[in-house]
Amino acid sequence: MKYSGIDLHSNNCVVTVTDDSDKVVAEKRLPNDLEKIIGFLKPWQGELAGVVVESTYNWYWLVDGLQEAGFDVKLANTGAIRKYDGLKHTGDEADARHRAHLLRLGILPTGTILPPAHRALRDLARKRLQLVRSRTSHILAIENILARQKGARISSNQIKRLTLEDVTAMGLPADVCLAIQSNLAVIRTLNAQVELLERRLQESIGDRPEYALLTSVPGIGRILASIILLETGPIDRFAEVGNYASYARCVDSQRISNGKKKGEGNTRNGNKYLAWAFVEAANFALRFCAEAKRFYERKRAKTNNAVATKALAHKLARACFHILKEKQPFDKGRCFA
């Protein structure tokens, strides 16, 4: 049996093939050319137990291409792989061999390879978040300009309703007006693109039964439901509700020895988009759900605002897991018991 590990970079990769004794059978640095990589691995395809590709920012093309060529591909969870710190020398070749070694031992931490169509739609939701953040930066820029020029604050909703004529009527210097008008022009463009992406997301997943179930949760509307559904993927990939809550970064990271906390682990391990979505849902639930408000107040009395909000987000994450797993609508009594 043979094992392959690939250390992937932006413009090249190191491909390694090893045997049952971790002896290197073949190894070469190749450009990021799918045909050349497949051609290099082809002689051992029938013997390969799998090809390990690290989960970098640019893995889509390589994993999809290898799978289409008939290879059994494993996506390595790089955040969970830690090499011995005492090694005197490491490099790309050593990294590729180490991944093949973990595959041979059967202890390779892997991530889920979602279908290309699902990833494309999920990335569209992430693109919407990027555009919304950019729009917020331009709104804040206008707030700052007006605070400097007029010594007064204006709400974001008022800024969204501003027209070019409104800016001209403020009696500000010509260059200041031009700066504000530039921000408004970008905001209008971003508004149009955000609306376009939202329509596409709604058309793609609005009819799914899981989508309707998620919108039954307090604080979760159509946008957050879309993000949670797409970022979660198949719910069966999470063995227990705790695994899902951890993936959503809703649980603490601790290192305990003899009953004492000795530090923290990788606090960023998990999905940052799910973490954001559940905190947003918690903040909305505080406004519109009395049970969520009471739960939050009980937690805040013992801790502080941030911890209480995170605890509520944890509750909502667990509720969403059960909803997606059991295909049942939200149960307030079960969530906030």
Rank of each mutant, 00 (worst) to 15 (best):
residue 148 R to S: 11
residue 155 S to R: 06
residue 157 N to M: 15
residue 323 I to L: 08
residue 109 P to A: 02
residue 77 N to W: 12
residue 187 I to R: 04
residue 25 V to Q: 02
residue 151 G to R: 02
residue 220 I to K: 03
residue 302 K to H: 10
residue 70 G to D: 14
residue 39 G to S: 13
residue 267 T to P: 04
residue 313 A to L: 01
residue 92 D to T: 05
residue 217 V to K: 13
residue 258 N to P: 00
residue 46 G to P: 02
residue 82 R to D: 06
residue 20 D to R: 13
residue 113 I to Y: 10
residue 288 F to Q: 14
residue 194 V to A: 02
residue 241 V to S: 08
residue 186 V to T: 11
residue 42 K to S: 12
residue 22 D to P: 02
residue 151 G to K: 03
residue 165 E to M: 08
residue 23 K to H: 14
residue 224 L to H: 06
residue 24 V to K: 05
residue 50 G to I: 05
residue 252 D to C: 04
residue 68 E to N: 09
residue 199 R to V: 09
residue 213 L to H: 02
residue 32 N to G: 03
residue 283 N to W: 15
residue 41 L to A: 11
residue 276 W to Q: 14
residue 107 I to N: 10
residue 142 I to Y: 01
residue 103 L to F: 12
residue 12 N to E: 12
residue 3 Y to N: 09
residue 92 D to R: 12
residue 308 A to H: 07
residue 110 T to P: 04
residue 291 E to N: 00
residue 263 G to C: 05
residue 210 E to I: 03
residue 245 A to C: 03
residue 204 S to Y: 04
residue 176 V to G: 07
residue 314 H to Q: 01
residue 260 K to E: 13
residue 165 E to H: 08
residue 234 P to D: 15
residue 270 G to N: 01
residue 149 Q to Y: 10
residue 227 I to M: 02
residue 324 L to W: 10
residue 234 P to N: 12
residue 72 D to F: 11
residue 227 I to Q: 03
residue 273 Y to S: 13
residue 116 P to R: 07
residue 48 L to W: 03
residue 333 G to Y: 00
residue 306 A to R: 14
residue 99 R to F: 15
residue 91 G to K: 00
residue 143 E to W: 09
residue 28 K to I: 07
residue 305 N to P: 01
residue 98 H to E: 11
residue 209 P to M: 08
residue 320 C to Q: 14
residue 69 A to Q: 04
residue 70 G to N: 10
residue 260 K to G: 02
residue 128 R to F: 02
residue 302 K to V: 10
residue 318 R to N: 14
residue 149 Q to N: 12
residue 182 S to C: 09
residue 238 F to A: 01
residue 239 A to Y: 04
residue 150 K to S: 00
residue 103 L to K: 09
residue 146 L to Y: 05
residue 134 S to D: 14
residue 129 L to I: 11
residue 114 L to F: 13
residue 329 P to D: 09
residue 268 R to F: 09
residue 152 A to P: 00
residue 215 T to V: 12
residue 63 V to S: 06
residue 331 D to T: 08
residue 214 L to A: 07
residue 214 L to H: 07
residue 214 L to W: 07
residue 294 R to I: 11
residue 321 F to W: 15
residue 111 G to Q: 15
residue 95 D to T: 03
residue 205 I to T: 08
residue 133 R to I: 09
residue 16 T to M: 06
residue 130 Q to I: 14
residue 281 A to K: 10
residue 95 D to M: 04
residue 323 I to C: 09
residue 37 I to S: 04
residue 154 I to L: 05
residue 268 R to L: 12
residue 38 I to Q: 04
residue 192 A to M: 07
residue 149 Q to F: 05
residue 132 V to Q: 11
residue 152 A to R: 08
residue 42 K to T: 10
residue 172 L to Y: 00
residue 14 V to R: 00
residue 190 L to E: 05
residue 132 V to T: 14
residue 215 T to D: 04
residue 7 D to N: 00
residue 87 L to G: 08
residue 332 K to R: 15
